[in-house]
Write a protein that binds this DNA or RNA. Structure first.
Length: 424
RNA sequence: AGAGAGAUGCCUGAGUGGUUAAAGGAGCAGUUUGCUAAACUGUCAUCGGGUUAUACUGGUGCAUGGGUUCGAAUCCCAUUCUCUCUGCCA
């Protein structure tokens, strides 16, 4: 959430940023926010003055009562009564304006970083870097949804029976490979200095608001009605919310945390060849890395996280590219976002396997995640996160790219974890 | 799930209706000593008004939401959470 006093003082910058993000009616939205804000502050002044008077009167009444001057106290009481009726009106108005302001602010996305390219959608994203050779496959090469049947390592029909579409059952070497990847990613993260956590995979409403999934992406999350809890769409939610309402010591920065969790997404309305097989699931596994950083250093950190994620892809020997998302494609809360995509040879398309974002103070403002700066003032921190990595599409790419007549070769780095070197 | 106790700032913790969220600790800033340490002083949540910025100044905040009262950390109601005991259980 953007900070209202920042918008107040940087109206032009706010507007330009919102337009780059392709927010509809940006000018209108900014005007509305500022108007509510000014009314709210006006009301607060009146209310504060009213309360100040009430306080003075209450004190006087107290003294009169002590002195035994009951009739004089009664006179002052009638004055307080008038103030109280006024105060009640002002309080209602103030609360209403406050709600309105929050609701309006929730509608505003984060402002994009200066390096974010202009653009309306996925076609305008900037390719920053490509790595690895895209080898042509044999004419009889199969897409991963055929390979998993051939080698019997993932069963979608069984998943349908016990849960529904998009909930695959991993079997045999498929299940083992999943477990191997999780351990590999967690070990790598530990080596890179991330503290490991195992967070809950259901979260309350406050956590959903903290990282920005609520209110606008409510429909994307599974909701447990009986207890008012949401299944997490990503470990970003519980891990970042560990630091909700926390004032950290700047010496402890950056705070680096990693965790493995299953992720749940309803993905309402998705269909077609692009969501076939492992391309898009309702439940999948992911290792997530999160950093909390000093505002002056968050862009260095973003670069460092991007390099770290790329190092994983290199070790897995997968061809990949890095995109800098344009204003129209970048997510609601992010100021800067790189997507990592691996090339899926049999599908002949790029698959997003990671997304690393700097949220600047957008989440921290909702989380009330702060530090004390040099002058003893509280200041919002920056939050960043990235997938390192999401398993299903990595698995799809490994299956498709590494298929040979003898079977599917496991990347060398994973072999100590799987205990086998090919699926056949 | 049942009974009892409890929830106060970054942390510990006093406070049972009348100006003040006591006190201590951590952190930070300043002063002093040749460095460190120590000592001393200050600061310590949040929204405003005011100012170029200070200064100055008002409100709110004792788990959350209501209520009683001229006045609530303190009394009442509801909710959430924590601890202890009992029950159940991977």
């Amino acid at each position: 959430m953007l900070q209202i006093h920042w918008i107040r003082e940087n109206k032009a910058l706010t507007l330009a940023g919102l337009e780059k993000k392709r927010l509809k009616n940006a000018a209108e939205a900014v005007e509305k926010v500022l108007e509510i804000d000014s009314k709210k502050r006006e009301t607060q002044v009146k209310l504060d003055q009213n309360r100040a008077k009430q306080g003075v009167l209450a004190k006087e009444i107290g003294e009169l009562m002590k002195a035994g001057k009951k009739t004089e106290a009664e006179i002052l009481k009638t004055q307080t009564a008038d103030l109280k009726t006024q105060a009640k009106e002002l309080e209602t108005l103030f609360a209403d304006l406050e709600t309105q302001l929050t609701q309006q602010l929730y509608l505003l996305p984060n402002l994009p970083h200066a390096s974010v390219p202009e653009g309306a959608g996925a076609d305008d994203n900037e390719v920053l870097y490509e790595h690895g050779e895209v080898k042509p496959l044999a004419a009889d090469a199969l897409p991963h949804w055929e390979l998993i049947k051939k080698y019997d390592i993932i069963d979608f029909e069984l998943g349908v029976k016990i849960s529904g579409a998009g909930f695959p059952v991993y079997k045999g070497k498929g299940a083992k490979l999943q477990r191997a990847m999780i351990n590999f990613f967690l070990d790598q993260a530990a080596e890179a200095g991330y503290g490991e956590v195992q967070p809950p995979i259901v979260v309350n409403e406050a956590s959903g608001y903290g990282t920005g999934q609520l209110p606008d992406k409510e429909g994307q999350m599974y909701f447990i009605n009986a207890d008012g809890l949401y299944l997490i769409p990503t470990a970003e939610v519980p891990i970042t919310n560990l630091y909700r309402d926390v004032i950290v010591n700047p010496k402890d920065l950056p705070i680096k945390t990693a965790g493995y969790t299953p992720c749940f997404r309803r993905e309402a309305g998705s269909w077609g060849a692009h969501v076939r097989g492992l391309n898009r699931l309702h439940q999948f596994d992911k290792v997530e890395i999160v950093q909390i950083q000093h505002p002056d250093k968050s862009y260095e950190t973003h670069e460092e996280m991007s390099q770290y994620i790329q190092s994983l892809l290199k070790k897995l020997e997968l061809p990949y590219r890095v995109l800098r998302l344009c204003g129209g494609d970048i997510s609601f809360g992010a100021a800067l976002c790189y997507d990592m995509e691996v090339y899926s040879a049999a599908q002949q398309r790029w698959l997003e396997v990671s997304s690393v974002s700097n949220f600047e103070t957008f989440q921290a403002n909702r989380l009330k995640l702060r530090m004390k700066d040099g002058e003893g003032k509280t200041q919002l921190l920056h939050t960043l996160n990235g997938s390192a990595l999401a398993l299903p599409r990595i698995l799809a790419a490994i299956l498709e790219n590494n298929q040979t007549p003898e079977g599917i070769w496991i990347p060398k780095v994973l072999r100590p974890y799987t205990g086998f070197d090919k699926i056949d």
